[in-house]
């Protein structure tokens, strides 16, 4: 066990990560809302079918609790998520922030980016949204920008791909 280092005489400056400059498309709120509503609906309908046959008290309570959680989740969290989820791409690095209860910031230099992908699920296609995933050579380092406008996402992918192709080596 190493003894603690004596702390420096002056306290270090108070630092924080600044918010990335861009927000995703406002339609993303609708997308998250629909997606969450869909998964909650599966849970609630499943519980409801069981309640048709047996009505133990704990299951009724559970179903009510789930219904309240679902309403809160569908009405409130998409907005918070929209506020929290920000991104930024400079000519040096990609910087993404997300998270509702656990804040999560990720930074990857463009010189270490391996692939840039877009995904669009059925709901996203209908809303004209895209998710951009930036992967590095590490299994833990993927950055994801969810709910970008389709055309903006295409531009971003093009710019990132051009920047990563400009760097030599295998980005490890």
């Amino acid at each position: 066990m190493n003894p603690g280092v004596p702390t420096p005489a002056e306290p270090p400056p108070r630092l924080r990560l600044r918010p990335p400059s861009h927000q995703v498309d406002p339609r993303a709120v609708t997308w998250w809302r629909l997606r969450d509503a869909g998964s909650w609906a599966v849970v609630l309908v499943g519980g409801g079918v069981v309640l048709l046959f047996v009505q133990p008290l704990w299951l009724v309570l559970l179903e009510v609790a789930a219904a309240i959680a679902a309403v809160l989740d569908v009405t409130i969290t998409p907005r918070i998520r929209y506020d929290r989820h920000r991104w930024e791409a400079t000519d040096q690095a990609v910087y993404v922030r997300y998270g509702v209860f656990v804040e999560d910031w990720r930074v990857a230099p463009l010189s270490r980016v391996q692939t840039v992908d877009t995904q669009r699920g059925p709901l996203q296609q209908w809303l004209g949204l895209s998710t951009v995933t930036v992967t590095t050579a590490s299994t833990a380092g993927a950055l994801r920008i969810t709910g970008l406008d389709r055309d903006k996402a295409a531009d971003l992918v093009e710019a990132l791909t051009a920047a990563t192709e400009a760097t030599a080596g295998d980005a490890t």
């Binding site: 656990v102 804040e103 910031w105 930074v107 590095t136 590490s138 299994t139 833990a140 380092g141 980005a171």
Partner: peptide, 30 residues
């Protein structure tokens, strides 16, 4: 080091604790 990841749960916010991961292209990743 090929990427940084910083995380902070609600509990960590007030005591100013930050969980930091350094990603590398090897082993378990970070």
């Amino acid at each position: 080091i090929i990427a940084w990841r910083f995380r902070r749960s609600v509990l960590q916010r007030r005591p100013r604790l930050l969980t930091t991961s350094a990603a590398v292209a090897a082993g378990k990743g970070a």
